[in-house]
Write a protein that binds this DNA or RNA. Structure first.
Lengths: 171, 171
DNA sequence: CGCGAAAACTTAACATGTTAATCATCCGCC
DNA sequence: GGCGGATGATTAACATGTTAAGTTTTCGCG
């Protein structure tokens, strides 16, 4: 069996593994990724049915909650990096869902606001979205869900100080 | 002030919002995303220093834990979609970090295994990765971290049944 | 004033996520 | 033994993540 030989060669390389590594299933990033994907799988069809991606929806929601907002501040609130935001804003503006002006006092700053058309779209999407959220809370347990959110926020908080090497000396 | 007019127009559109929407900060997908990003921000520099992306690292780790594995099974274990995996495998193979054969009994199936070079790379990256993980556990609390992982797994489990419309009739 | 550094975006370039379409192979079945 | 559906994997096309570089405008300051 030529196949047994190949297997032997592979195993030889594998036997050099003296590096202990946690099992994959215990990886925290993996657990967070899987949980988030399980949640998003519930929401995506509804968004998609209205021609929206998850990120576009985040932006519209953020804009709907304020009168107007600057690009950088929106990036912070919607948790998007500048380049992604720039592209998405270009598209949303072309679709007439948002409007943009230039700050008269500082022409570097762009000021964004949602349009009436954008508000109308939100009104169409929100009910389904709320229903899905209620369903998740119901299946998982509202109390438990609140506890989970609290723990997630604490995790984020406990890691916030350490900017991972580069800005380690910010404090 | 012509600006006051624009503001008035924006507010008019906003006043049509009879759609109650949870505040952004209470969004579960957002909380998961933020937590995951906070965690990954710790790991990314170390991976990047060795020329690896997060996904490439997931693949190498998964391959290191087995003798060999098929592409579809690897996608499931590393939690990657087929197309992403295909591209990454092409690159990893070109870099000599993995090897691929074709299943003799079913020529549709590709069989993957890590190379000696790949194992060596893992040995270089793993210590730093483990140290970072220990640091996170230390700052957040090992007990709490375990509890969080359990809750995440339960969330995933409680949403697993509902395949979001399409495959709702699988059971 | 005017020069240089910093700030706010934007563009560029490459990697991945996501869905649909395509390709090759296998398998059941007539 | 060959046709048709199912399966494994890749490719295509578009959107976003991620880092670096470029552009425009401000601002400090001599």
């Amino acid at each position: 069996m030529s196949e047994t030989k190949a297997k032997g060669a592979r195993q030889a390389a594998k036997d050099a593994r003296k590096v202990p590594m946690r099992d994959f299933s215990q990886s925290l990033p993996m657990a967070l990724l899987r949980a988030r994907e399980a949640v998003m799988r519930q929401f995506r069809p509804n968004l998609r049915a209205h021609g929206l991606t998850e990120q576009q929806w985040r932006i519209l929601r953020a804009l709907a909650a304020v009168d107007s907002i600057e690009v950088t501040e929106l990036a912070r609130v919607a948790f998007l990096l500048g380049p992604s935001l720039s592209r998405i804003l270009r598209d949303l503006e072309a679709r007439g869902l948002i409007q943009r002006e230039v700050d008269a006092r500082d022409m570097r700053r762009g000021v964004l606001s949602i349009s009436a058309k954008g508000m109308k779209l939100i009104a169409q999407v929100a009910p389904g979205s709320e229903a899905i959220y209620a369903s998740i809370a119901s299946h998982y347990g509202a109390r438990k869900l609140a506890a989970l959110q609290k723990m997630l926020a604490e995790l984020e908080g406990s890691l916030a100080q350490f900017g991972a090497s580069d800005e380690a000396d910010d404090a």
